[in-house]
Write a protein that binds this DNA or RNA. Structure first.
Length: 1154
RNA sequence: AGAUCCGUAGCUCAGCCUGGUUAGAGCACUACACUGAUAAUGUAGGGGUCACCAGUUCAAAUCUGGUCGGGUCUACCA
């Protein structure tokens, strides 16, 4: 189905009507034709648009990609190039994708696109995780059955068929997201974990582990989910959200000490009254299975005389000394025993004896809850004794641990050591077995979501209370593991299971982990490192139906076993068994061999041992995490195919993988474990783990809270590019991201809007002038200063962006691009250069401007392509369609820019910064005195402190003058003497030298007079006394700035100070008016809807000030407004009324006729 | 309970590694301006005890220790 669908895309274009294509892609027809018309063919005009619409652009680009098979081409173009190996972590398609999938996939995509543009070949095989519990539970729910019904109400064949269908239920949605968000991954030939070939590789892996002695069977106490009916692996238990705070009924039970020689010392101290051991439990349901009490050997215990708070009977209890405070109040010590009644609130107590835990070892006690099912004989050991072990602490409870070997790993271990036997009084559904009186058949937790569930733990506690066997019963809130799928509490349960002995390679895993580049670093060292240090063997077994079967066959007595590593091997064994065992054995599989490696077929296969005994398959399935952990090999059907790809390093290990941080103990772990165990190698060289996506208030997104963001809506409304750009640039991928739609809007407006405007500006004028980059590339040294500058900045940008991408820091890279586009390119270069595009002839300077802006835009398109693949391709194609500079039809096929170091001129970038600062200061001064920029001013003074500063400023002088509309800049050196200066210590330099005297020096320097400063500047040094010690102050140990120029408007920023002459001469005013006139007429031109190039005729109502301006600036005005004629008319009646400096006049604008 | 990351303007984030004296940017808000790129842009303004406490230092948002709050993870925890 998968293949059919995807392979069909291309033929569709060829054979069907456009309307079919349209409905298939839900793309407006127009878009398809536009692109066919405008993008595939070269054209002479740059495309112009009314407004930016990212979603439309994206649809257009998607259609183009589909038509050109752009993704496939991006891989095939690099055939023979060095491979960059990427692994796609397989998603499970049985749930809807969410916005958090968009961030990790953006991350993966951008790295792959970047590396492709760096010249690597990046194959990206998609994949689907198809086995496992989520699928099974979904099917059970859908069919309204439980695990018990499988094989009864529904056959395993049918059930597995349902699973096979259900698992790709949302595949279409996933594919749609993949396409719409612009994630390039091979969806046509994905690896699918349920396919035979995939499973065959898994079997090969298992057999290899088996041969290395790393696969073994053992009984162990494991987390078990009665609700799901399966054991859980440690990584499943380590899924986020499994540990939840729950309130359980906890009980401190009283175990009655048996009187014998060993315990006599207790009874002596207690005056031969009853003595009880106090033991705490949060799971009273384990009490019937109690077989021991464990104490710490070196812990101090006490015997306390008191009353039972429920029955008010006098009792003597044993507990850890440190924990007395938990049960007794200090003021009750040695209290009034005689006067104690049921109403007494304060419990009197008295310590009768104190002893170490080891003195209690071997003491016996009476069984707490005896029934038919838990007689000592049934335990198979010698139960009801006090045991000693080191796991006991005095942080909680009583310091005496109730020990039920079946239901705790520690309990099992210590129980085995002492031989107290084992009782498993709860069945696999989570209910008590027969023979436990009133508790028989009751669920120990509410596994079935019964409305009227009565907590058996409460009933047990009540019973204990009544029988004088409970000392304290209370609700206790603690965190308890829950099944990650069913949300029901897990219990620990003795199970037979197959394990991978990961602990055997722990050291090697730790060692190799140190060679992995983790982003962020802390995850690898801390979270993953700690996890490796504390690793336990990997429990592979799952008692379910839909999954990879364990390929191990055993004789009934377990004396012989066989691990199968390939289909061929299995078929051979099948025939052999039939020959040896005869009859109907394997008769269904003799002819064609086995066709499906799943249950129930594999279970029907009987193999034969060396000595002719039948062997049956171990019934377990394996952990789905093994499926995904083995994907590097299984996706290529290694070693049955593609042997070299794995062994010669072209497909293993991965150069890069990325997933959510929640995969640290999941996929990242199993990949690593298998890489180390199978090939003694890392499975990936770099791993990026991204953080969670939270809602805008910082809460986790969950269906329950209803704050889940639908990625389709977001992408549909704002575009994939804006979404991707936002997700990447807002916060580092590994920080958790507070997702806010407003942020995407901002990105769209500020970054894409600005860049789009810049392109639009370019297209507008380039079309007028017919610029198609046909002229020779103008050497950089023949371009004006500002072109040199923007190109220098651009190359610095290329360099920095590349560095950041190489470091897997896309956030920083994106922010740099953003800054460049907004600050440098749009708001400085284009703004200052506007006139160059619309004025003058099409010659050197103008061509230089076009070439420069073109280069910037084209380079930006390439730089941003990894993060926002659509807009960049659109921009790139629009440009290239006219110039045809490169042959590739997509930005994703070209190479990433390489920084042209020779273009970088840091001095130039520095002085442009000076120009920007100076302009900003001057504009702020204009603002202060309320003089419009349109009004020319005569002069600016800038104090300079050295010749280099002056030189720098002089080179950008024209830019400043134009920008702020000032006629001249005058540089002041201190020889003029009327600058008021300010001096400040250079703390960094001086602090190191002076240390403790810094403060005093600071005060002294602050008191410098203008003369002192002048002296220091002249001499270069200055002597002063600090704390009666001489100090020779160097010029470089202070910062001297000009503070004020008396009589001038002054502003400063850092070292730069500007002073503005705000005197308005009639001359200047007249020029200002001329500019006002130009402005008004331009507005009228625009309102009238004239073309940029239309010539006009203007008639102005005559008046005094108009006469002044027009007579003086007639030519200037006419050039600006493209007027053939500008005349003053008396008594003009018709025309537009305008206002210039509070004077209104009439004006008439008409098109020239020619 | 431990580990780890985080806490800077109403919001999103820089700055912290390498301590240096007016703590920055964008958004939002207010006012004014500019504009043949115009749903853009500029200037100005309000808005911060850099979570808190202590220490080191001449000097702390920055280094150290602790406290509080939040996230994530771990845990045999009876």
């Amino acid at each position: 189905m998968t293949r059919l669908l995807n392979n069909s895309i291309i033929p569709l274009f060829n054979y069907f009507e456009p309307s079919v294509i349209q409905s298939f892609f839900s793309i407006p027809l127009q878009a398809i034709f536009i692109y066919i018309g405008d993008l595939t063919m070269s054209t002479t005009k740059y495309r112009e648009f009314n407004q930016l619409n990212l979603p439309t652009i994206e649809q257009e680009i998607l259609a183009k990609w589909a038509e050109n098979q752009a993704f496939e081409k991006s891989v095939s173009l690099r055939e023979g190039a060095e491979p960059f190996v990427f692994y796609e972590g397989p998603p499970s398609a049985n749930g809807m994708p969410g916005i958090h999938h968009v961030i990790s996939r953006t991350l993966k995509d951008l790295v792959c696109r970047y590396k492709t543009m760096q010249g690597f070949q990046v194959k990206r095989k998609g994949g689907w995780d198809t086995h496992g519990l989520p699928v099974e539970l979904g099917v059970e729910k859908e069919l309204g059955i439980t695990k018990e019904d499988i094989g009864k109400k529904i056959s395993i064949v049918e059930y597995n068929q349902k699973c096979r269908e259900a698992v790709l239920r949302y595949k279409d949605k996933w594919d749609e997201l993949t396409t719409k968000m612009g994630y390039w991954v091979d969806l046509k030939n994905p690896y699918v974990t349920f396919e035979n070939e995939y499973i065959e590789t898994l079997w090969w892996c298992l057999k290899r582990l088996y041969e290395k002695g790393l696969l073994y069977k053992s009984v162990s106490i494991q987390p078990y989910s009665p609700a799901a009916g399966t054991g859980l692996s440690s990584h499943e238990l380590n899924q986020p959200g499994t540990y939840k705070d729950v309130k359980d009924t906890s009980a401190v039970a009283m175990f009655k000490t048996a009187k014998n020689g060993d315990s006599q010392f207790l009874f002596d101290a207690a005056g031969n009254d009853e003595v009880f051991f106090l033991a705490w439990t949060t799971t009273p349901w384990t009490l019937p299975s109690n077989l021991g009490l464990t104490v710490g050997g070196n812990i101090d215990y006490v015997l306390v005389k008191t009353f039972n708070p429920y029955t008010h009977l006098p009792v003597n209890v044993v507990l850890a000394k440190n924990l007395i405070g938990k049960y007794f109040k200090p003021e009750g010590e040695n209290g009034d025993f005689a006067g104690y009644t049921a109403e007494t609130k304060l419990l009197p107590w008295q310590i009768l004896a104190e002893f170490k835990g080891k003195q209690l070892e071997g003491l016996r006690y009476e069984q707490l809850l005896p029934y038919e099912a838990n007689t000592p004989e049934k335990s198979g050991g010698d139960p009801f004794r006090v045991l000693v072990d080191s796991f006991v602490t005095t942080e909680d409870g009583t310091g005496i641990v109730h020990t039920a070997p079946a239901f705790g790993a520690d309990d099992y271990k210590v129980g085995k050591k002492y031989g107290i036997g084992i009782l498993t009084l709860v069945d696999r559904e989570g209910k008590f077995v027969d023979g436990l009186g009133e508790f028989s058949h009751r669920y120990v937790k509410n596994y079935k979501d019964e409305q009227n569930y009565v907590d058996v733990n409460v009933d047990i506690s009540v019973k204990l209370k009544k029988e004088n066997r409970a000392f304290k019963v209370e609700k206790y809130e603690h965190s308890y593991p829950h099944c990650w799928r069913t949300d029901k509490p897990v219990l620990y349960y003795p199970l037979d299971a197959w394990f991978i002995k990961t602990t055997a390679v722990k050291d090697r895993m730790v060692e190799l982990n140190k060679t992995i580049n983790w982003k962020p670093k802390a995850t690898g060292e801390g979270r993953f490192g700690n996890w490796l240090e504390n690793m336990v063997d990997w429990n592979l077994s799952r008692s379910r139906y839909w999954g990879t079967p364990l390929p191990v066959w055993r004789t009934a007595d377990g004396s012989e076993e066989k691990c199968i590593g390939s289909i061929e091997e299995l078929n051979t064994e099948i025939r052999k068994a039939n020959e040896v065992l005869g009859g109907d054995v394997n008769k269904h599989y003799l002819h064609d061999g086995i066709l499906d490696l799943h249950k129930p077929y594999v279970d029907e296969v009987v193999l034969v041992s060396k000595d002719g005994k039948p062997m049956h398959r171990e019934p377990d399935l394996i952990d789905v995490w093994f499926d995904s952990g083995a994907m590097p090999y299984a996706q290529w059907h290694y070693p049955f195919e593609n042997k070299d790809a794995i062994e010669k390093g072209t497909a293993f290990p991965a150069d890069f993988i990325a997933e959510g941080v929640d995969q640290t103990r999941g996929w990242f772990y199993t990949l690593h474990a298998l890489g180390v165990m199978l090939f003694d190698n890392v499975a990936y060289k770099t791993v990026v783990s991204n953080g969670l996506v939270l809602d805008k208030n910082g809460n986790k997104m969950s269906k329950r809270l209803g704050n889940v963001v639908n990625p389709f809506e977001t992408i549909g409304t704002f575009g994939a590019d804006a979404t991707r750009w936002y997700l990447i640039t807002n916060a580092s991928p590994w920080d958790s991201l507070k997702f806010d739609i407003e942020g995407i809007k901002e990105v769209q407006r500020k970054f894409f809007g600005t860049l789009y405007n810049t392109y639009q500006f370019f297209a507008l004028y380039a079309n007028v002038d017919g610029f198609a980059f046909k002229e020779a590339y103008i050497p950089i040294d023949q371009r004006p200063e500002i072109d040199k500058w923007i190109l220098s900045s651009l190359q610095s940008l290329v360099k920095n962006v590349t560095e950041n991408f190489n470091q897997y820091e896309p956030t920083l890279a994106g922010r740099l691009i953003e800054d460049f586009v907004d600050e440098q390119l749009s708001n400085w270069y284009v703004r200052l250069c506007r006139r160059r595009f619309w004025k003058g002839e099409y010659e050197h300077d103008k061509i230089s401007a076009y070439q420069t802006l073109y280069e910037c835009l084209e380079t930006i398109a390439r730089l941003m392509a990894p993060v926002s693949p659509f807009f960049s391709d659109w921009l790139f194609s629009n440009l290239n369609a006219v110039t045809g500079k490169v042959d590739e039809t997509s930005v994703h096929h070209v190479l990433y820019p390489k920084a042209k170091e020779e273009f970088i001129d840091l001095g130039l970038e520095e002085r442009m910064q000076l120009a920007q600062d100076a302009s900003s200061l001057i504009l702020s001064l204009r603002k202060k005195v309320n003089i419009k920029v349109r009004q020319p001013l005569q002069k600016v003074l800038i104090p300079v402190f050295n010749s280099s500063m002056k030189g720098q400023l002089q080179k950008v002088e024209d830019l400043i003058k134009t920008e702020v509309n000032v006629k001249e800049i005058q540089y002041l050196t201190d020889t003029e003497g009327f600058i008021k200066k300010k001096i400040k210590p250079n703390f960094q330099a001086l602090g190191k030298k002076l240390g403790g005297k810094m403060k005093a020096a600071g005060v002294a320097i602050g008191q410098f007079t203008q003369e002192d400063i002048a002296l220091l500047e002249k001499e270069g040094t200055y002597s002063l006394l600090i704390d009666n010690e001489p100090l020779i102050l160097q010029l470089n140990e202070v910062e001297i700035t000009s503070e004020d120029i008396p009589g001038w408007m002054v502003a400063n920023k850092g070292i730069l100070t500007v002073a503005l002459d705000v005197t308005l001469t009639p001359e200047l005013e007249s020029e200002g008016n001329a500019r006002e006139l130009v402005n008004r007429i331009q507005k009228i031109r625009k309102d009238n809807g004239y073309e940029l190039t239309d010539r006009i005729m203007v008639r102005l109502a005559d008046s005094e000030f108009v006469k002044q301006s027009v007579s003086q600036f007639d030519e200037y005005i006419r050039t600006e407004i493209l007027a053939d004629k500008l005349e003053l008319v008396d008594g003009l009646i018709d025309g537009t009324e305008i206002e210039v400096n509070d004077i209104s006049l009439k004006i008439q604008v008409t098109k020239s006729i020619n």
